[in-house]
Design a protein around this nucleic acid. Structure first.
Lengths: 152, 152
DNA sequence: GTTTAAAATTTCAAGCTTGAAATATATGAA
DNA sequence: TTCATATATTTCAAGCTTGAAATTTTAAAC
């Protein structure tokens, strides 16, 4: 009983620490994107998802992948489209669907941004070696638990 | 050289996994707060910081603690104040400063919300035992690195 | 004591985000 | 076919968030 209460408290603290690290990292990356590429984190995230997919992607798959609402995906993609970085097209078989993809310009811009982005992460996570990363992967996988969502 | 590139890629992936877990957890907690307490994550976070402090707190300390901008802290506290959950008062010695604290109503409401909040976290992080939490603390501390910011 | 610079907070515009309602399309049953 | 239901997306209001400018107060230099 005593131990369970203690364990519960430690889990809460673990979450708070993880949230703190995540915010710190996001703030750092936001600054990098703003200063060096005049863009934002949500735009980068959307472009990263599209780049990784390597092919036109359903709007709903995009928002599910990023864990954001459909409405959110719509507005961010809208802005990217206005800037000529992404393009939307109605689905061929199912016309309810909207497919979105990076333009050539969007691909080029993302690739330029992604290099420095990776460098910044390596700066922040530089204290972790290969063994640490293996442990961290194991832990995060166990938190994600039996969820349906997959990363690739 | 080969290994460094590989390590860099793994660090990026580790960050993406951590971000994913953080979003998943935040989405879950947001849903809990919305359904059970008709409130939001940023309001809860501010109230948690004030509750933990246990005494009036400078606005700037609040925003630094939460890793959000000053303007953000202002607007969230403003809404809490309008609802009678927090109160602001000018600093006594230094009148540039604004001190903020929970009201009795705010304290009571937070404590009711916090119980279920902890339960939800225990649900999500239930797969981690005491040893796991020790490892996770070590890893997150190393990522936070030699930063100035402290949690307490 | 004035002036200048620094610090704490608020204000503001622009963009982000959610959750619910609205729209459009598809599918299946009668 | 036609109706009902389900699915995919967009629209919308309200709230969140940032970064920069403005405001207020303090501290320091002269």
């Amino acid at each position: 009983m005593r131990d369970e209460v203690d364990l519960s408290r430690r889990r809460v603290r673990a979450w708070l620490r993880m949230l703190r690290v995540a915010r710190q990292t996001e703030n750092h990356l936001r600054e990098y994107l703003r200063v060096n590429h005049a863009t934002t984190l949500p735009r980068f995230d959307v472009m990263a998802a599209l780049h990784r997919a390597g092919a036109p992607m359903k709007m709903s798959d995009l928002s599910r992948h990023l864990l954001v609402s459909n409405g959110n995906a719509t507005t961010v993609v809208e802005r990217l489209e206005k800037d000529g970085l992404a393009a939307r097209a109605p689905g061929q078989d199912d016309r309810r669907v909207v497919m979105v993809d990076l333009t050539a310009k969007g691909r080029a811009e993302f690739e330029a941004q992604a290099l420095g982005h990776a460098d910044e992460i390596n700066l922040l996570f530089g204290g972790l070696d290969a063994a640490d990363l293996t442990v961290l992967r194991d832990l995060t996988k166990r938190i994600e638990g039996g969820s349906d969502e997959q990363d690739g």
